[in-house]
């Protein structure tokens, strides 16, 4: 269960962005997470409700996007979606593939409450 440490790190990073923009209030944080990142989104969402307390993200909403696992075959070059524990080509069955997506753990954007003059 490392989602809480991930969450605390995420909030510190979002707070740094808020500071750069001169605001105290983070309204929303967007994440994109693939299953091969090792992060479970439902656990992360629950950890967020604890980790945000007393931070600039105290009232922030967490919007998460679960990315699919996709691989590109080095043999037949097909790009297919696969389960996280079977990264073989969906077209020809070869295991010589490279991951196209599915291991991301990214903060993709945040929304900030700004002073009128800054909007």
């Amino acid at each position: 269960m490392h989602e809480l440490s991930v969450c605390q790190s995420l909030i510190r990073q979002a707070e740094a962005v808020a500071r750069e923009h001169g605001t105290e209030v983070i309204v929303l944080i967007r994440l994109s997470v693939g299953p091969l990142s090792g992060i479970e989104l439902p656990l992360l969402e629950r950890a967020f409700t604890v980790a945000r307390c007393g931070t600039r993200a105290a009232r922030a909403e967490l919007v998460t996007e679960a990315l699919p696992v996709r691989v590109r075959c080095r043999t037949c070059h097909a790009e297919t979606q696969t389960p996280p524990n079977r990264l073989i080509c969906g077209a020809c069955g070869d295991w010589h593939t490279e991951l196209v997506s599915g291991d991301e753990m990214l903060m993709t954007g945040i929304e900030l409450e700004m002073e009128e003059s800054h909007v």
């Binding site: 990073q13 997506s101 903060m107 954007g109």
Partner: peptide, 30 residues
């Protein structure tokens, strides 16, 4: 990466400013 490029390209869903809020596109590992 090819998997997340569509999120931040012009016209991507994170490139717009939300009503009354400043939307900041970041791509940072958690």
């Amino acid at each position: 990466t090819p998997g997340n490029r569509h999120l931040v390209e012009p016209g991507g869903k994170h490139a717009h400013t939300h009503d009354g809020h400043a939307a900041v596109a970041v791509l940072q590992n958690l």
